[in-house]
Nucleic acid binder design. Sequence first.
DNA 1: TGTACATCAGTGAACGCGCGTTCACTGATGTAC
DNA 2: TGTACATCAGTGAACGCGCGTTCACTGATGTAC
Lengths: 196, 196
Amino acid sequence: MSTTDRQAALRAALIDIAERRIAEGGLAALKARDLAKEAGCSLGAIYLHFPDLDALVFAVQARTLDLLDAAMSGAAGEGADPAQRILALSLAYLEWAAAHRPRWAALFEHRLPSEAEVPAAYRAQRARVFRHVEAPLAALMPGAEREALARSVFAAVHGIVSLGLDEKLETTPLPALRAQLSTVVLALARGLATPG
Amino acid sequence: MSTTDRQAALRAALIDIAERRIAEGGLAALKARDLAKEAGCSLGAIYLHFPDLDALVFAVQARTLDLLDAAMSGAAGEGADPAQRILALSLAYLEWAAAHRPRWAALFEHRLPSEAEVPAAYRAQRARVFRHVEAPLAALMPGAEREALARSVFAAVHGIVSLGLDEKLETTPLPALRAQLSTVVLALARGLATPG
DNA sequence: TGTACATCAGTGAACGCGCGTTCACTGATGTAC
DNA sequence: TGTACATCAGTGAACGCGCGTTCACTGATGTAC
């Protein structure tokens, strides 16, 4: 194994470990010392590969966004009637969030005090992914304000998933949450199809 | 001013200052040193009135819950048709959240690592307030699962408000957010009124 | 092929900061006589 | 009313911890001759 290979391997290992830590305990669970310990390197070695810990965090967050994007793309579905497609997308979001709870929650956490410090590339990717996630929804929306409406529908789904999975308020069991989300989403779809 | 009065005044001042700090910058903005400085007392004095900073935080959070409760009670409205009442409640939540953004956000922040450390009294109050907030909604819901449904509808509203006011993703201007929330809530109400 | 040298990924110990919290002390307040 | 004493709210300086980050050094890897 050449020096260059070893370098690349350590860098990759650091990202993998950080990813797993965040996947298990959210952003707060990422500590430089733990990371170095698990990677079997010294603290200083981290800084040979990343300018600071935040850079590493954003590398992981970028992967999470990709994962979300992929999961939602698979659920866009075709053919079925609009309400069913909206429902499928909503449930896909719920399943993904439930399966990757801390990573998903991390997407909405603020580790940095100000949004201005968030790298532009990450910000752009985030906007792109959410636009992509909302796109199939937008295609199903009536009226001129398709995109804003799709965003709100997604936000509504996110809210139900978010409070439902938050162990702070009592966590709703997943099957019940599926049922409740379905009821609301189907009602919403019905309502959207009926002119007010 | 007697010693006892001075004591009570300092205690009250500490809560007021903490409240304002949290109201301005969220939970993260509360630091023992700042607090002491603004109150014009020493660091140690804080600990004569509260066992630790968390106790002070929970005192403030309790006030925030009271405030939310009061704001929502005023919006329950009567007489109007169900959809309008659901809408009124939703908009009231939006207005309150927008007006008290950091305090409102603090209600959903986790300062303590585990929910188990949250005082039972606060937990009970929180459950009570949210139940109270959801009650008028529940009264308007069809079917047997009124309460679960009301919780989901509230969660949907919360999601729209939450993502709409989050400056992380682009903040939606308040008038636009009002309009979008109204559209979705009215559609949802229509859909709930129409049997699936 | 072997040897002297340069490079540089990685080390480990320390730095420095912000933070909540503690504690020996003080001095004003209130009490007993 | 005045004096000696006890109480205890508040002081301020320090403690101790966890954290991200830095830096003088090392030793294995790769190169030049």
